[in-house]
Structure formats: C-alpha cells, structure tokens
Design a protein around this nucleic acid. Structure first.
Lengths: 199, 199
DNA sequence: CAGTTAAGTGGACGGTGCGTCCGCTTCTGA
DNA sequence: TCAGAAGCGGACGCACCGTCCACTTAACTG
C-alpha cells in the first residue's frame, strides 16, 4: 500500500499518445521542429490539452520523436565498434568514426531545423533530449575512446561535444541557400572531423 | 527634377534614430538579441511604430548595432595583415589568424545569443547582416588568403564560412551550463581552427 | 449489465510578442 | 505665421504558447 499504484493507462489515452507521436513525426518532418504544437494536435485529431497531457513540453515530444532514430544510431555505433579489428589501425578508426558521424548527419536531414535545435539542447543539457540520446552517446563514446587510445582523437573532446559540434555546424550549413547548403554541410563536417584530431 | 529628393530627415527623426540604436545596444546586451523589440522602443522612449519606421526588421536593427563593432574587427584584420613580415612563416600566420578569431569571439560576448543568431543569419545571407560585415569579411579574407598561400588554411573554406563556423560553435558552447561554457567555447574554437588547416 | 467514479479530453482563455495601420502631432520652409 | 509634409506612437489583428476546468468516457464493481 505504501508503493505507488502503477495502474495501466486507459485505452483512449494510449491511442492518443501514439496518434500524437505519429502526427508529430510527420509535422516535424514537413514544417521543422519549431512547428506549432497546435498543428500537431490537429493532425492527431486531439485537442491541445491532450497533447500537453502526454508531452509536458516541446522538448519531451521532440525527444520522443527522435528516440528511435537515436536508438538506431546507437546500435550502429556498437556495430562499428564491434566490427573493428583487434588493434585497429588509425585509418580504420578514422573511417569508423567518419561513417558514424555521416550517419548521424544524414539522420538529421529528416527534421528541418533539428541541427541548430539539437545543438542548443544538447549543450544546454535539456533533460528530455539528453536522456533520449544517452545510450547513443554512450556507444559513440565507446568508439571515440578507441580513438583516444589510437591517438586519432583529441582526448579533451567527448562524444557529447562531438554531437554538439556536428549539430551546430550542420545546422548553420543547412540554413544556407540551396546551391551552397549541401557542399557546405559536408565541408563543415570535414572541418570538425579534422579538428577533433590531436594537434 | 527626375532625380530623387534627398531631403535631410527631420530633427526629431534623427534624434529618435539614435535613441533607438542606443537603447537597442543596451537591451540586446542585457537581454540578448532576441529581446522583444517593444522593450527597446520603450527604453528609447518611443512607440513601436517609430522603431519600425527606422529599422524595418530586427535584422536591420541588429545589423546597425553590430556594424561598428565589426568595423573595428575589420581594422584589426587589416592591421594584423599589415603587421605580418614580408614572407610570413606558417606560425606567424597561424598566430595572426588565431588572434583575429579570438577577438571576433570575444566581441560576441557582449550580446547574448549572438553566436547562434549570427551563424544562422550569415549562412542564410541575411541582407542587412551580411552587408554590415562585408568590410570586415573582406579584410579577414585577405588574411586568410595569405594562409592559403602559406599552406596553413584549407582553400575550400572562405572567410564567410570561418565566421559561420566560429559563430555556430561558440553559440552552442555558450548555451552550456556555466561551469563548462567557457572552457567549451575555447576548445570548440580550437577545433575549428585546427579543422580549417589543410588535411 | 447497469452504475459509479476517476482518468482523460479538448477547447476556451489569458498572456506575450510580432508587425501594420492610420489619426494625430510636430517640424520645416515659404 | 501658417500649410502641409514628415514623422509619431499606440491600438489592432494575428500567431503561438501553456493552463485550466467542465464535460465525456473507459474501466472496475456489485
């Protein structure tokens, strides 16, 4: 009796939860992560109040939307790490890191505005967002750790900070006019990848 | 008669223009570059309409506020360039570039939020802002050009892009919780400076 | 298979900031 | 001194946010 009552949520509640999540994915994809929450509620066929009941803030909703994408990236990091030979050569490590970062960058294309937005939230340690990416970060940190050992990565930059750097520069690159945007993004990522190697 | 009438503006108009500009400086400094324009109008003792009459958008006002700071940075770039020995050594060039970039970063501390904001506007080629920094950019590009020659700077990254990169990463760093913010900023700047050197 | 009730809903509401518009005021040049 | 152009500034309509609460409805109970 002293323990909390875990009561399973009502059926309509669960239904609305996933309606909102689904709607959020498509609205964020179409209008960017700053889209009015009201649009999402409307798309989900629920009221604003219901949306807020399930996701206390935009952060929470955004984190929920990103969570599974980030889970996938977490797995990729683990796989890349596992796929590395016993003592990996510097070039193999660089390649693995670059591969992962590219995947991270590509995954960011789906939701406009996510670059700068994520950078800011990661840097600010926004609870819901950092929680949602904690596993991914842990696995990428693992990979990065092998970079430290092999001397291909600065030891004063950790996984979280690489994510911030990459998100920030891709975010900026993507606000550029279309002709430049794509090439800028890849050059900016290059700059960061080169920059996180030891001097 | 076919030519336009250049009529000098009325006295109250000029007065209000500078009141708004002064107010904008202090409000932007105190509340960040996203401060409500109404606050600035109030601080200047004018109505919102008057503010908009003089500065059509937030961009224009922001650009006007930043203009003289950027002029100073433009001069610094020219001086650093002029102060370089006839054939500068790579290290001398690196030092000059680093010095200028540090000055740029420090100047950004005055207005909270300017990092990410400027990065986005520079990348998006926001008219008023890119105009305001065109001289600074030109002079810094000059310095960077000598970097290309000396082989200490990637030739596929220009001055504009260095500004974007630096603004983006410092912007992110500054949203970090205070304990980390300062050290993060300097490490992030280091990463970019290292990253813009040729592979 | 009602009846009860707590969980859940959703839209109305108040608040903030934006940018525009236009009736009124003030400067300026004749 | 006065006419009229230039400039002023606050009221207005719009968009979005996040909260609140009267109503609905799913889920347990006898």
């Amino acid at each position: 009796m002293s323990t909390s009552t875990p009561r399973t949520p009502r059926a309509d509640s669960r239904r609305n939860f996933s309606s909102v999540l689904t709607a959020a994915r498509s609205v964020f994809a179409a209008e960017g992560i700053d889209a009015p929450l009201e649009d999402i509620a409307k798309a989900a066929g629920v009221g604003k109040g219901t949306l807020y009941r399930h996701f206390a803030t935009r952060e929470h909703l955004l984190a929920a939307v990103l969570a599974d994408r980030w889970a996938t990236l977490g797995e990729l990091a683990a796989e890349l790490d596992a796929g590395l030979p016993a003592p990996p050569s510097p070039d193999e490590l660089r390649a693995a890191i670059r591969t992962w970062v590219s995947a991270y960058v590509n995954s960011g294309h789906e939701y406009p505005g996510s670059g700068a937005g994520i950078a800011a939230r990661l840097a600010a340690e926004s609870e819901p967002v950092t929680d949602a990416c904690s596993l991914m970060r842990k696995n990428f940190q693992q990979l990065l750790g092998r970079g430290y050992d092999a001397g291909v990565t600065r030891t004063d930059i950790d996984a979280q900070e690489v994510l911030i750097l990459i998100s920030a520069v891709t975010g900026a690159a993507r606000t550029s006019p279309v002709p430049q945007a794509a090439t800028r993004e890849s050059r900016f990522v290059d700059v960061v990848l080169a920059g996180i190697e030891p001097a």
